[in-house]
């Protein structure tokens, strides 16, 4: 579903991604781990289309199409979803309006009929229950005055409503207590399906106890330096990221 080849990206004068290669198939859950500043969040935002980054080399193929050639909203309409590490507050736009606008924009892009008010309300109710959220939050402005946990839950709610094909979760576990982490993980697991791929970007192994990945990659210095199965996450937890420095050189040399 997603094929990243030799991806290089920079922000102003700093090269952040230095040749990422990654292949994710439908139905798989991949975890991308790595120390702070390794380029994890950059990778997530490059996939979503953030315009602050310049792609200097490489290509990204999504569902057979050139992802890097698409507008931000086009990527979303094609089924790419990014759950933000820092969700944006939008004063004056209600969650409900926002969600309906998003769903119907995507429907219009796909030449599908717009969702009726009744169907929208029913879908929203179901997803709110899944994530243990109060419906009164939907009349409030997008993320405004939400606690850190509420914001993260709201990201997963949006994901559940939009039903993406490729979901990228950027540090969804940060700032969550254990109860919120369980709820959010259940929300994510409910979306696991043979048609959907999920990339979980995280600094800690903790989240991966709840969202068990098929593959784990370690990002350091803008490259993937190790790949393995879920046991790699445990090894990292045990040894820390420092042991990777030598690993990075090994990969580069090999």
């Amino acid at each position: 579903m997603l094929e990243i080849k030799n991806l290089h990206a920079r922000s102003e004068d700093t090269e952040i991604l230095r040749g990422i290669n990654l292949s994710v198939a439908a139905g798989e859950v991949h975890a991308i781990m790595g120390p702070n500043g390794s380029g994890k969040s950059t990778l997530a935002h490059v996939l979503a289309g953030r315009e602050d980054y310049e792609i200097t080399e490489g290509e990204v193929t999504y569902d057979g199409k050139d992802l890097l050639d698409m507008e931000i909203e086009e990527r979303a309409a094609e089924g790419v979803f990014l759950a933000y590490q820092y969700p944006v507050e939008i004063s004056g736009v209600s969650n409900k309006y926002f969600l309906k606008a998003a769903i119907n924009s995507i429907h219009k892009y796909r030449d599908e009929p717009v969702i009726s008010r009744k169907d929208f309300v029913a879908l929203l109710k179901e997803k709110l229950e899944l994530l243990g959220m109060d419906k009164s939050m939907m009349d409030r402005s997008v993320n405004e005055g939400f606690s850190g946990g509420e914001k993260k839950r709201n990201e997963i709610l949006q994901m559940a409503m939009l039903e993406p094909k490729l979901a990228v979760l950027d540090e969804t576990d940060s700032g969550l207590d254990i109860d919120a982490l369980k709820i959010v993980s259940e929300g994510v697991n409910a979306l696991r399906s043979p048609e959907r791929a999920i990339i979980v970007v995280t600094h800690y192994q903790r989240l991966l106890e709840y969202i068990v990945p098929d593959k784990v990659h370690v990002l350091a210095g803008g490259k993937i330096v190790r790949s393995g199965d879920k046991s790699l996450a445990l090894e990292l937890e045990d040894k820390g990221y420092s042991f990777l420095q030598s690993g990075a050189e090994t990969v580069a040399a090999g």
Binding site: E71, V88, I90, I103, Y109
Partner: peptide, 11 residues
């Protein structure tokens, strides 16, 4: 703007 667009809402 980026946030809204990344949810599929045209610019």
């Amino acid at each position: 703007l980026y946030y809204l667009r990344s949810r599929g809402i045209p610019e």
